[in-house]
Design a protein around this nucleic acid. Structure first.
Length: 553
RNA sequence: GCCGCUAUCGUCUAACGGUUAGGACACAUGAUUCUCAAUCAUGUAAUCGGGGUUCGAUUCCCCGUAGCGGUACCA
């Protein structure tokens, strides 16, 4: 057991360079000039270079909540694990989220720059701050030096496993908890590496009732682990940095992934020994994926859809992805969207207590539907702009076409987009080439054409007659009337119901006649409204396509 | 193993302790006399199991089971 004086002596010896006191630090971080309703939230990722769709989900929540309350949203980089860090990891996060329309009022802007008065916003540059608190804790005997080697820790773990007790550095297993002053000094002077651990006063038997903003009332056991606060490289662990940073930065409450839920009692104890006001948590459940009958977290190694780049490359509309994510967050979002088709998602009243408590399966089918609905609400001009933006990066051929044939492209995209019958067949921007290629002769040439099983002579007759009577100025009913006439003349039935009753009496129905024309013009059996397609393509192209088709028969 | 969280159609979910357990996606069928998409109509489909409490339980309690998370000098 060490005396109070001895602890103070150790603390001073440990951090001779630390001049500031805890009070000094707090003076550097004054209370924010905001009211209670204005939420200050943060997103605090590690710069691992990989932006997970779950990161977008979590940050979207903080972003919307802070925006709606007219508060602040900040980005803090947790780069205390030097082994996992990658180059330009910060830019990857900032730019990735920017692509999703999520920006920060405060925090890191890129590898070097930041914005805001509560920085530094990168933990490796806050070491002096952590040291002040660590020194304070050591001098008060609430933290201590631990010289246990990784091998010794492994031994303890093995012993605990064989004894069938909890693993970890706690209670009687915490060798250095009450080491004598002389022993500490001896090891310190010999230059042996050490960590600083929390001197836990918790009892695992005690239960704490607390409120999670998402899960509601929860009971957790008190922490009794002497967790590492400062690692041997002098950097803090997440457990130590989180209370300090979130307190100094004036965070309203913590939104974070559910994987942190289990360590909240540890965090609560650290808040307590630091004399900080406890912070509330909103633990957001992870996005899951069905795999061989079992549910599991979306994995960056196994699931391509875990990476944000997947959505970008495939051209999923960003707003659609965000809307889908909001759907998972608050399932009443879809009803709201139907009632407010024009409103931006910032206006949606996102409620933490409505979040799903367990993890939701990420459902790409549902995502497709949400994206399809989203795109159907856009104008042809907007579809054009978004598709162009996507193509610039991912489809050079489409980009060329869109750039050089802007008006024609918008006309194509406008087919069945206005009026009451809105077309809903574009899910993502990468679907656009399929919609457009038949309108461009060079692309059309490379397309795989579908064929009909109608007799060739009959097809020729129909098409020749169609060419004879074709007039570009025909209205849709006039146009269709001509097709009907051609059909009747060639033994097709004009009445669908009549045809259904006795199909043997006819060569087919009028739809079959239109189909010949469709295939001749587009090479496909399924297209948007044929009349509109013809209007957009123009007379010359129509005549050429049909002649070409007749010759190929 | 231990600790914790969670549990309603295939999926996301709704239901002051009293409902024929609702909606959306997906799926199936039909209607739309040019196909497809869309739209409209209809349909298939769920309270994990067992005990309590209660006149009455999807809802509250306990046990079990399952899924998830944690059990690091990673976050």
């Amino acid at each position: 057991m060490r005396t109070e004086q001895e602890n103070i002596q150790i603390a001073q010896l440990l951090f001779p360079e630390v001049k500031e006191s805890v009070e000094d630090i707090f003076k550097r971080y004054p209370k924010r000039n905001l009211n209670e309703e204005q939420l200050v939230l943060r997103f605090a990722p590690s710069p691992t270079g990989f932006l997970h769709i779950g990161n977008v989900y979590t940050s979207l929540v903080g972003y919307l909540l802070s925006k709606r309350s007219n508060g602040m949203f900040l980005l803090r980089i947790e780069d205390t694990d030097k082994e996992r860090e990658v180059e330009n990891g910060i830019s990857a996060i900032v730019n990735g989220l920017k692509g999703f329309g999520i920006h920060f009022d405060e925090g890191m802007k890129n590898e070097l720059e930041s914005e805001g008065e509560y920085g530094p916003y990168i933990q490796s540059q806050r070491i002096d701050i952590y040291k002040v608190f660590a020194r304070d804790l050591v001098s008060k005997g609430k933290a201590y030096l631990c010289f246990a080697t990784p091998e010794e820790l492994e031994e303890i773990r093995e012993k605990q496993t064989s004894m069938k007790v909890r693993t970890g550095y706690y209670g009687e297993f915490a060798k250095w908890r009450n080491a004598s002053f002389d022993e500490v000094m001896k090891n310190l002077n010999s230059g042996k590496p050490f960590v600083i651990r929390l001197y836990s006063n918790g009892n695992i038997e005690n239960k704490i009732n607390s409120v999670d903003l998402i899960k509601g009332g929860v009971t957790v056991s008190e922490n009794d682990m002497d967790a590492v606060l400062l690692k041997s490289d002098g950097l803090p662990t997440y457990h130590f940095a989180h209370p300090i940073d979130d307190t100094l930065m004036g965070i309203s409450f913590v939104t974070r992934g559910e994987e942190w839920f289990a360590s909240q009692s540890l965090h609560m104890e650290i808040f307590k020994v630091l004399y900080f006001k406890q912070l509330q948590y909103a633990h957001i459940s992870p996005l899951m994926k069905m795999d061989e009958g079992g549910k599991r977290k979306l994995s960056k190694r196994k699931d391509p859809e875990a990476a944000v780049s997947f959505y970008l490359e495939n051209g999923f509309p960003i707003e659609g992805v965000k809307e889908y994510l909001l759907n998972i967050a608050n399932s009443n979002f879809s009803d709201w969207r139907i009632q407010n088709p024009e409103k931006g998602i910032v206006e949606f009243d996102l409620k933490l207590e409505k979040f799903n408590k367990a993890g939701a399966l990420f459902d790409i089918t549902k995502l497709n539907d949400v994206c399809k609905e989203y795109i159907s609400r856009l104008s042809a001009k907007q579809v054009y702009e978004y598709a162009l933006e996507w193509a610039r990066e991912y489809d050079s051929r489409l980009f060329e076409k869109l750039t050089n044939h802007k008006d024609y492209s918008i006309e194509i995209l406008n087919i069945e987009r206005e009026g009451e019958k809105i077309r809903k067949d574009i899910v993502k921007w990468s679907d656009v080439p399929y919609q457009m290629e038949l309108f461009f002769d060079d692309m059309y040439k490379d397309m795989k054409k579908e064929s009909l099983d109608m007799s060739l002579d009959l097809q020729k007759d129909i098409l020749n007659e169609y060419l004879d009577t074709f007039y570009m100025g025909d209205s849709a009913p006039e146009w269709f009337g001509k097709i009907k006439e051609i059909g009747i003349k060639n033994g097709f039935c004009a009445d669908y119901k009549e045809y259904e009753k006795s199909p043997k009496k006819y060569k087919g129905k009028i739809g079959d006649v239109a189909m010949v024309i469709r295939v001749a013009i587009t090479g496909r059996k399924q297209t948007p409204d044929l009349y509109q397609v013809i209007q957009v393509m123009g007379e010359n192209r129509i005549r050429e396509r049909i002649k070409e088709y007749i010759n190929s028969l």
